[in-house]
Design a protein around this nucleic acid. Structure first.
Length: 493
RNA sequence: GUCCCCUUCGUCUAGAGGCCUAGGACACCUGGUUUUCAUCCAGGCAACAGGGGUUCGACUCCCCUAGGGGACGCCA
């Protein structure tokens, strides 16, 4: 059998290491079997998907050397590879299901559904569509379809058990009563993930689906759709989820998750891939340093361990050091370093910010160092240049962390606005707010303008530095955090 | 709350019933090399979640409990 795997990221944010993780395993499996690896963009969430995000995802995967055989940028025999461009195809499949009685139009409002779920959970039941629109008279449905917003839901049995075959875990049994009557077609005419993924995996002849453990609970929906359509089910492999040091699912709130962060920190793509490869998987001979090619050669699904691994930056750093020392001679080191930091694109971003402040080139290094550093070595005294107390500084920094977590458009002006708003909400002068933030981001009181610097550094690096600064200043105890959360919730705006 | 998944040193892992006095790696500690630092080298600390089975024998198989995680959206 010809093996075909895919990675199917959603372009709704920064390129996530979890995406790279799934891509790595999918690619290794496909390559080892002489098959194809496909990149498909799942942009059915029109409100949150952006072309910029898609672009960054493609660039990041390319940077890592995870090359796909078919994708939106290079086409292929199963295109298009962007779900937004496949939109016209889905309605027909949904109609097939409606005609066969496997799906039905639903007119329920969000309010009613929220209320229903709330009550169900209060009663200790699993939240699940109550079938309200499933048995409407045909005439009523026909008339309402013409003038009312509606979705299409799949029918799901209320009795019996669904058996999901997982290549790593064997048979997983989930009662149908636990499975919601999933919306397949949204009111805006776009398919939901569940419909699109099944249709596309089938049409693209995907044979092995390697995805995160978080999908186990929705696998029955997919199993059922394959049955309804009469299609063969691909093999499913649910990988363990990458975790934060506190064991929760890896998230940007607690850990840098963006691939671009690791690039900006100066990690080598080879080392990042190598590190991802040793999470949940190991070489038969126990060797910890290996290339993508070696991993492909030795790859074996049976060597995957199921415990969800903690993403440990310290070990990644050690591994990167080995790659740097063992694989790069001075010339190669120089080339990589220039490409990383002193490339034209980087310089052109920074030069406009610093040229006013420079008389001779040798003035540059201190001014541009913020861009080349990872976690700056802070001088604690720099934080309270304006006489604020340590607790007050930590409070401000923590608030900034929370505000920036909610910021989607990480650009100069929105950042500017964020600080203006926060200062207003706190009823303090903006310079009193910006002082400590400036030091946290730039590492010292003298550097290019804050918002531009933050825009260049990107969200993950900024958040990491803010958190690092908080640690250096003694950290925030659980108790203090509780109190700060309370204060924060009370802020206007 | 309901359901699902998972469980070997702090962390990543080796372990397919006897090779286990449970191995390696990161981190940490100690010492050596190095005019400093780093690298490098040597050593140390440190784990089979608990309880029942099955078996001549269980880290390994089964059951229960506990703990951790995930899912419960017109997000993916």
């Amino acid at each position: 059998m010809k093996v075909r795997t895919r990675v199917a990221p959603s372009p709704t944010g920064d390129p996530h290491v979890g995406t790279a993780y799934m891509a790595l395993f999918s690619l290794c499996f496909a390559r080892q079997h002489g098959g194809q690896f496909v990149l498909r963009i799942e942009d059915t969430d029109v409100a949150r998907s952006t072309p910029e995000s898609e672009q960054k995802i493609l660039e990041s995967l390319r940077w890592l050397g995870l090359d796909w055989d078919e994708g939106p940028d290079k086409g292929g025999p199963y295109g298009p590879y962007r779900q937004s461009e496949r939109k016209p195809m889905y309605a027909g499949y949904v109609q097939t299901l409606v005609d066969a009685g496997h799906a039905f139009p639903c007119f329920c409002t969000t309010e009613r559904l929220d209320e229903m779920r709330r009550e169900q959970m209060q009663r200790g039941e699993t939240a699940r569509y109550d079938g309200h629109c499933m048995h409407l008279p045909g005439a009523e449905v026909a008339s309402r379809l013409a003038n009312e917003a509606h979705v299409v839901r799949m029918k799901v049995p209320t009795q019996g058990t669904c058996v999901v075959q997982d290549r790593l875990r064997g048979e997983i049994e989930i009662d149908w009563a636990q499975i919601d009557m999933q919306v397949l077609l949204k009111a805006d005419g776009n398919p939901t993930y569940h419909l699109a993924v099944v249709v596309d995996d089938h049409l693209m002849e995907i044979t092995h689906i390697i995805r995160g453990e978080e999908w186990i609970n929705s696998a029955p929906k997919h199993v059922l759709l394959y049955q309804y359509f009469g299609w063969d089910m691909p093999e499913i492999i649910h990988m363990p989820l990458l975790r934060n040091p506190d064991k929760s699912k890896l998230s940007k709130r607690k850990n840098p998750t963006s691939i671009t962060f690791y690039e900006r920190m100066g990690f080598l793509p080879e080392a990042v891939i190598n590190y991802l490869g040793m999470l949940g998987w190991s070489m038969p001979d126990g060797e910890e340093k290996f290339t993508l090619a070696q991993m492909i050669e030795q790859f074996d699904l049976n060597r995957i361990s199921l415990g969800a691994p903690v993403f440990d930056i310290a070990k990644l750093k050690w591994l990167n050091g080995r790659w740097l020392r063992e694989d790069l001679d001075a010339a190669a080191f120089a080339d990589k370093l220039v490409a990383w930091a002193y490339n034209r694109k980087n310089l052109l971003q920074v030069i406009p910010l610093i040229r006013e402040r420079v008389d001779v080139f040798s003035d540059l290094a201190p001014l541009a160092s913020f861009l080349l550093e990872g976690m700056p070595a802070y001088d604690e005294s720099a934080f309270n240049a304006r006489g604020a107390s340590l607790d007050e500084i930590k409070r401000l920094l923590q608030f900034v962390v929370w505000r920036t977590e909610a910021l989607h458009d990480w650009q100069r002006d929105p950042l500017n606005q964020l600080f203006v708003d926060l200062a207003a909400a706190l009823d303090i002068k903006i310079r009193d707010l910006l002082g400590p933030v400036f030091v946290a981001i730039a590492g010292k009181p003298v550097a290019p303008p804050l918002f531009d610097s933050m825009a260049i550094l990107g969200p993950d690096m900024c958040r990491a530095r803010l958190r690092h600064a908080l640690e250096v200043l003694g950290g925030v105890s659980k108790k203090q955090l509780k109190k700060l959360e309370k204060d924060y919730a009370l802020l206007p705006g």
